[in-house]
Amino acid sequence: MLSGARTFGMKALTVCVWVGILFAAGALSGLGGPGVRGGVALAAEAEPDIDAIIRAIDEQSSILASDFTATLTIVTQDPEKGAEKFVVREFRRDRENKFLLLILEPRAQMGQGYLMDEENLWFYDPESRKFSHTSLKERFAGSDARNEDFTQSTLAKDYRVTGYQSGTLGNYQVYIIDLEAVHNEVADPYLKIWVAKEHNLVLKVESYSLTKRLMRTALFPNYIKEGDVVIPRVMIFVDELVPGRRTQITVTEHSLADLPDTVFTKAFVERANR
């Protein structure tokens, strides 16, 4: 008998409590439905156009008109190692598919950077002063977040809808949509997403392995809304394989101001460490 299976009930309970607390309390208070593109779902309540909803999710998470800067506080709770905190400065330019993550804390890893440059993701280590290849699918700094969690959503390009149903999540009416990857270059072969009918916001995502085992649950209880763009203010990633392990990411000090082109270069990452 699997040891992990003994704690399955406890895990399920934990997730339910999280979902209940975060969503039933109306944590999405920063969003006033009308400003967010919710028309697709409302117009198609009887027979929703799920593909259109998926496209809307991608569109409203993509910051195409400007750049994006924010500070991310990443706290990982591990049953063996305890709590671990990272503070990261994020720079995004979705229209060119570029981003940069610079680690500010802890001190031991200060200056490490992840630079998405055209098609390749580079990891910079200030100790060796070397860039090495890494992947969007890799975990970010040992947390439960992956590098791709910090980029724009590309669900419509990477997945096809295999089924959906209506349901509720806390106080929210949602579509629960099953997605299957259309190619083998995304980390999650299968996804199940909970999308609020009111404003097409993704509230919860379950990631399944190639063997269709639940690996991770992501919760997005709070969003920042800037014009037509929405960015999760809080992200919670629950490891479904290791009981008690989860990561919370909180976004602060966000800005949509344009950034110099030099930010998304290796030279900038190197200079940031001098």
Partner: peptide
Amino acid sequence: RLQSVTGQQNV
């Protein structure tokens, strides 16, 4: 928990 040769998550 491991990755496929193309980097997909698997268990």
